[in-house]
Design a protein around this nucleic acid. Structure first.
Lengths: 226, 226
DNA sequence: ACTATTTATGATAAATATGTGAAACAACAC
DNA sequence: GTGTTGTTTCACATATTTATCATAAATAGT
């Protein structure tokens, strides 16, 4: 599993090291930048940075500016560090697209907690983003499924269902199990609705539809072979 | 094979049952506690609880307190359930040593995923079991039986039956016993139906069919050698 | 060897599960 | 509101499994 990369931008090396130490302890990969320009260069060169921590006060280009530049192209979670709890800054921060806001001095635990919370919210934590099986590619983040070269349009439930199938490939799944995992726990409807969704999935998957196998008297199984 | 034990603490029995059901389906052993004191008693009496799921809001002793008490003596993974995504609670959670944090209402998928992720992180998760006897392999999870190299197609009942045989190999099984274990307890049909299933099983197993032995006047026995 | 009992087998009937299209229903944007 | 899309339910055809029955074969006791 890939580790999550975090970009830390601060002109003070002491502060960068502090933040880095705590994050590294939590198993993140930390990349440092000491000013806004460097930050932007690094960010746009690395396509897989999952979170950015920005100091507000930096020479040349301040945190707000860096944030705006990044926001033009990316929705990556951004945490802003400011010297003091200044209400106006905070407001400005949310306007330019900051996700979290931490005022110095902060406790390292707070920092780590916010980082993990944000990553969890954006589903970046401990989750594989792209599943690929037998010519079927599933981008969980983008909610896109491609078969061969073609993108296929799936509804929400259909998407959830195929993800569940692929994540449990080779395992026989009873209808009950599928209901409990793909539907919410407060769903008490007919299990046959699964059949309908399977039917649509199979037809949308075309050739690959046969990978969803029926296990008579039991349920379904996603399996690629033969 | 040892199953993983999970302690679920919630004052609402409905919620406990809900969580329990999903986890039991995933083959965990679930122990329930309805308040903090009981939870601590159970936790420190059982040395082999692998994970704790705690509701935050409980009378007498709340989830945070329970968590702190446990953390004084143990690093067991702890998941906290809260009624709403309250950032402050979340922070407090990480500070007292909560590993994960799930807000209600949650999807069972999320719950199970987090539990499994946490257990994987702490290496507690058992692998899916494969029974293998005399050239017959049974993968219960995938619902697949292979003889030699070939996969053989078995119906639901046939599959149940061979699993029962293999799990009780070397033991003489009366028809009554087989009926009670493979069929539902409310089945009142003819016990002779077993004969038919045994016949089909034997024929599908080919060479290996002879491992299912007839015990005259009694029933059957699965045995791999002379 | 004969008989009573039990088991094996093949054919058939009954029961059950699945596939499918259409309709009802719900959610949501316009 | 209306229209659109996604979801669930329903009904029926189809497919598959399971149970039952009649009969043949096998076994144990005499």
């Amino acid at each position: 599993m890939d580790k999550v990369k975090i970009l830390v931008v601060d002109d003070e090396s002491r502060m960068r090291k502090l933040v880095k130490d705590f994050l590294v302890k939590k198993d993140f990969i930390v990349i440092e930048a000491e000013d806004g320009m460097e930050a932007l260069d690094i960010f746009f060169d690395n396509k897989d940075i999952s979170l950015v921590i920005l100091d507000v006060m930096m020479p040349k280009m301040d945190g707000w500016q860096v944030c705006r530049e990044i926001r033009n192209f990316s929705k990556v979670p951004i945490i802003m560090l400011t010297a003091k709890a200044d209400e106006r800054s905070e407001l400005q921060g949310f306007e330019v697209g900051v996700d979290e806001y931490i005022s110095k001095p902060f406790s390292p635990k707070i920092l780590v907690a916010r980082v993990e919370a944000l990553l969890r919210r954006s589903n970046m934590l401990a989750k594989d983003q792209v599943l690929s099986v037998g010519g079927i590619e599933i981008n969980k983040a983008a909610h896109i499924v491609t078969v061969g070269d073609k993108t296929i349009e799936l509804s929400y439930k259909e998407f959830e269902l195929i993800v569940y199938f692929v994540e449990n490939q080779g395992i026989a799944l009873s209808r009950e199990k599928i209901l409990n995992n793909v539907w919410n726990y407060d769903y008490f409807g007919d299990a046959r609705t699964i059949d309908t969704h399977v039917k649509k999935l199979r037809s949308k998957l075309g050739e690959k539809g046969k990978y969803i196998k029926t296990i008579w008297g039991m349920g379904y199984k996603f399996e690629v072979e033969e």
